[in-house]
Amino acid sequence: MEGRPNPEQEATAARLDAVLQKMERVRQARRHKFYLRDERITLSHGSGGKATHNLIEGVFAPAFSNPLLDAMDDAAVFSLDGGELQLAFTTDTYVVSPLFFAGGDIGKLAVHGTINDLAMAGAQPLYLSASFILEEGFPIAELRRIVASMQEAASAAGVAIVTGDTKVVQRGKGDGVFINTAGVGLRRAHWPLGQTCLQPGDVVLLSGSAGDHGIAIMLAREALEIETEIQSDTAPLHTLVAALLETIGERLHCLKDPTRGGVATALNEMALASEVAIGLDEQAIPVHAGVRGACEILGLDPLTIANEGKLLAVVAPEAAEQALALMREHPLGREAAIIGSVQADPPGLVFLRTEIGGMRVLDMLVGDPLPRIC
């Protein structure tokens, strides 16, 4: 006669049931309540902010709806033959301009971005694909430089680029080179982990300063005469995630890298998916002085600016200090901070307690102050 499940197993099962119920509510909402009013694609639809969210909810999500897609996490997670072996699968396309910038290039960005999407699903990245759309006339020397950067980034992260494709379009029909990467990884987190898994009382951590990548791209693209040494933060986060998975375990409820749309958009997506509210402390959020100064000059909010080497981690309250200490011990988490917490109401809202003692709603990025950021 089989024994009863232990309390830990029962708690995990209850969390999984709650996640599935939330996903079903989201699925029904997509099917019956959302209407996309835009008639044509604009650059804002690629910003990662509200316009992107509306495009996905209004076009792609209802058309492609299935249990794997509906979670809308950074990677799909599935089992083979219904067994315990779980894989994560993700894809992304990179159209960043300029191709080379302080701290990185399109090739390094493509490798790191795909590795990070797998890591956010609790997976160890294993294999990548790389596909190139090249414009007629693009210099072979620059292509060699990009490919070498990709191989260096992949080797340093312990992953292999094992398949790919190449297409060429006529001069004037592209912009040098666009890169698509896909990746597969072995999932190490065998518990509910994702943006539908937040619970009231959870604590939100950010692994480092916000907005570095976006400001580095803007300064490189616009040749603005702002004296700052800001570089892109592009980096592979899988080793930091592995440390969190091993130490925090099931007390780790969600991981997300705040890329397009920044910290604000990523947190709004979490709040909507989990039907909770998230309160942030503005003074606790790390932002480099150069980024803050550039944002003030340009009229931007650093919390809506893209990052490529930072992660948001949502953990149970009793694990918050342990998670913070662990992150600060890692080279990619030395500036980590506890930036807020999860509460029950009002669901779907992110709000910011400002430095002057007020409070404001922190919405997703609206518009696109910096197109083609990644």
Rank of each mutant, 00 (worst) to 15 (best):
F34I: 15
L245I: 14
T42P: 01
V291L: 13
P347G: 07
T228C: 11
E318F: 02
G290T: 13
G261D: 06
G174S: 02
R260N: 13
D117K: 15
I339S: 01
D175W: 10
P62Y: 08
G261L: 08
L252P: 13
E229Q: 10
D92T: 13
I297N: 02
I248V: 14
T354S: 05
G299A: 12
F89E: 01
K167F: 12
S47K: 01
V77W: 01
N180W: 03
E2P: 14
L198I: 00
A216T: 02
K22C: 06
V184I: 15
C295D: 04
D301L: 04
P369T: 06
P67F: 08
A130V: 10
G358T: 12
G348V: 11
N307W: 05
D175E: 09
R144M: 12
Y127W: 15
Q343I: 04
Q283P: 00
C197S: 07
V361R: 06
K33A: 12
E282P: 04
R4M: 12
T354L: 12
N54I: 10
V77Q: 00
L349T: 15
G261N: 08
G261K: 03
T234P: 01
L206R: 09
A325I: 03
D17E: 15
L205Q: 01
A337G: 03
A344H: 09
T247Q: 15
E229H: 11
L300Q: 02
S209V: 06
A271M: 10
A123W: 04
Q199G: 00
S149Y: 06
A344L: 12
G367K: 01
Q231C: 08
M150E: 14
G158L: 14
A182H: 04
G185C: 11
L352M: 12
G299H: 14
P98C: 01
